[in-house]
Design a protein around this nucleic acid. Structure first.
Lengths: 128, 128
DNA sequence: CTGAATCCCCCACGATACTG
DNA sequence: CAGTATCGTGGGGGATTCAG
């Protein structure tokens, strides 16, 4: 069971919400998980689809996800090195959560507008 | 439609996930939303159930949630002041998301363990 | 190719005090 | 009761360099 890194959470009934958020929000973890749902990926493959994430951050986030038991890190001892990241069974339990996030984002933010038809929605200037 | 406050999000298909996270994660927003799903609440009522949140932060988070159209702020012009926070219809669209977070937290973190029977799970030391 | 180590800036956030 | 204003700080995270 993953541990909570940050603040002391009060234990009012809603704290489970924050607990989950703490685990999946650590900056880019959401997207990383999302992509790993589809397929195992190498480090550089993740870098490519996440151009705004620095190498350092990507490494750190992957390490935390690994610590929490969400992903598996498979190291192939060869030159050049090859490391593959994949979801664990436990990581897959997050699927409904991540998909709920994805679905809402698609419906209600301009970031889901890619798949839509009306360019009139693109009024947010978040593409540069 | 709410706007994204922080980083430039790449637009790989998973960005909708991060976009949603940005909006609901802003520190304690998740819990705030969770509690407002149940009932309209006054400022101090929220403070009481969120003892770890400073007054300043609570105010800021509520303001952001209001800006994003998730909650409504009803001011009663009277002495002493009375302000009630409630979810908007738009805010209620987040319900499946928040509930997915809640459910996962209940199942997989010690913060959901309050309602469970087996004390063997309480090995995390997050209660004090 | 994957990753660790170092430097350093910035601002999110806490603490505290004041107000209508 | 429900906020604002101000100040100080910790560490999150970017840029860069080194390494196997």
């Amino acid at each position: 069971m993953p541990r909570i890194r940050h603040k002391s959470l009060d234990c009012s009934p809603g704290c489970a919400v924050e607990a989950t958020l703490e685990l999946i929000d650590g900056k880019w973890k959401g997207v990383i998980l999302y992509h790993l749902f589809h397929s195992t990926m190498r480090f550089n493959a993740l870098r490519k689809i996440l151009p705004n994430v620095t190498q350092r951050m990507l490494t750190m986030q992957l390490r935390e996800l690994e610590e929490d038991g969400f992903i598996h890190r498979e190291i192939y001892p060869q030159i050049p090195p090859k490391v593959e990241y994949s979801l664990t069974d436990f990581g897959r339990t997050l699927e409904p959560v991540v998909m709920a996030l994805k679905r809402w984002g698609d419906e209600h933010t301009t970031f889901g507008a890619e798949k839509k038809k009306s360019p009139a929605l693109e009024t947010q200037g978040q593409h540069g």
